[in-house]
Structure formats: structure tokens, C-alpha cells
Amino acid sequence: MTQSPRNHSSLSTSFIARVGLLSALALIFSYVEAIIPYSPAVPGIKLGIANVVTVIALYKFGSKDAVCVSVIRIVIAGLLFNGLFGMLYSLAGATLSLAGMIGLKYTDKFSVVGVSMAAGVLHNLGQLLVASALIEDLRIFIYFPVLLFSGIAAGILVGVAAALILRSLIL
């Protein structure tokens, strides 16, 4: 991270520019995923390619960037194409997965892939918790194993992609 010499304002110009750029990139991934036709048997199964950007933001620039990029991406994607329900689920998932990612990265015991795998699982768990609260029926937890396994798979794929990009990034 570059140290700004004039750091009296809490939001430096470079931070705003960087977060704006990363959010735009993440939004494109969200859009691509939203227009790909797929019909999962279980609501909520997603690859989450936009999370590649979140993981890269976390490792390259820190947790503040990662949180901002993912919240901006989810809110705009919600307003544009995912709808308010989608936004609510994504925010719940993102809250849990960001907390998990930041926590695991802090321990310094996990690789990017491991952190991303945990994030994938926590993302699905957050969505499941919101769904069960909305529906007021715990029976929805019958989806827990499926969402857990798909979260692992999606998280690993996202993590490998992010790790490869991080390795070749010269920033």
C-alpha cells in the first residue's frame, strides 16, 4: 500500500479511486453472473466470481478496501439487477464472509485458497440464516449440506483464481 503524504482526510484520493475502480470491476463480474442462465435446484448456489475482486482487495490493499468494495458492489448490483431480496441475502452473506476472511487472514496460517474457501461457506451460511429468519421455518436448514459443499467448491475456485492473479500482479 502506498503511504499518502497528506493523510489528514480519512478518505484519501487514492483510496477513493482504487475502491471505485475495484467496485466497478466487481460489478462487471456480478453482472456476468446475473445474466448467465442457470437454474439451481437450491436457491443461493452461486459461484460468486465477484468475490475474486474482494479477495484481491483484501490481500493487496487491506480489510477496509475489501469491505468497501464488497458493500458498494452488492448495493449497486441489488439496485441494478439482483433486486432487494438478492441484496439482503448478499449483504448477510458478505458480512459473515468478510468477518471470516479478515479473521483467518489475521491468523496468518491459511493461504488465499483456504481463506476464500471459508468465505464461500460463510457466505452461504449467512444467506441461509437470513432465509430462515424471513421464512420463520428452520426446515430450510435441509439445504445446509448442499450449501456447505457448494460453498467449499465455489470458495476454492475463487481462491485459486485470486491467488493466481495476486501472484502475477505487479502493484
Binding site: 491459511f110 493461504s111 483456504g114
Partner: peptide, 11 residues
């Protein structure tokens, strides 16, 4: 490295 011991345990 791409995958570390803790990743495997978590998996």
C-alpha cells in the same frame, strides 16, 4: 504456497 496445512485441516 498455494495451499497450506491449515487449509487442508479446515477443508
Amino acid at each position: 504456497q498455494l495451499i497450506r496445512k491449515a487449509d487442508v485441516i479446515l477443508f
